[in-house]
Computed example of a mutant assay.
Amino acid sequence: MDWLVQWWDGVELWVVQLPVAVQFPVVMIVVLPACLGVARLIDRVVDWRAKNPASAPELENENESEKVNA
């Protein structure tokens, strides 16, 4: 895992040292597609969970007396 942290530090340092006119396009070319991909993944997972309620964990049914006492 240390190699990933070192790689990320190197990429971050490289981006920070670029001129702002170059930073913006580089970040937008990388960050925009990454955010779009994560958003689509989240959307698909939520849709899948909504269509498959049997796959959701079962909730404990509370007795009415427990609800009144609480």
Rank of each mutant, 00 (worst) to 15 (best):
L13F: 02
Q23R: 15
D43Q: 06
I29C: 08
L4D: 08
K67D: 00
L13I: 04
S55Y: 03
P57Y: 02
A21G: 06
D9W: 00
W3Y: 12
E62Q: 13
P33D: 01
K67M: 13
E12Q: 08
E66W: 00
L32Q: 05
L59C: 07
A56V: 08
W14Y: 11
I42Y: 02
K67R: 13
W3C: 10
K51Q: 14
A50L: 12
P19V: 04
W14G: 04
G10A: 09
W8K: 11
S65L: 12
V11F: 02
V5E: 10
L41C: 11
V30K: 02
D43P: 01
Q6S: 11
N63Y: 14
L41K: 06
V16T: 07
V27C: 09
S65R: 10
D2G: 06
M1F: 08
P33Y: 06
L32G: 03
A56T: 07
W7D: 06
N69I: 05
W7M: 13
D2S: 15
A50F: 03
S65W: 13
P53F: 01
S65P: 00
E64R: 15
A21W: 07
M1Y: 05
P53Y: 01
W14S: 06
P53S: 00
P25S: 09
L18N: 05
Q23C: 10
N61Q: 14
Q17I: 02
W3V: 13
E66N: 13
I29N: 04
W3D: 14
W8S: 10
L4T: 06
P33L: 11
V20A: 12
V45K: 14
V22F: 05
R49W: 08
M28C: 07
R49C: 11
W7R: 13
A50V: 06
A70E: 14
P57R: 03
A50G: 02
K51A: 15
R40D: 05
E12I: 06
V30T: 08
E64P: 01
V30L: 12
D9K: 07
D9A: 10
D43S: 09
N69Q: 13
W7E: 06
D47W: 10
P53V: 01
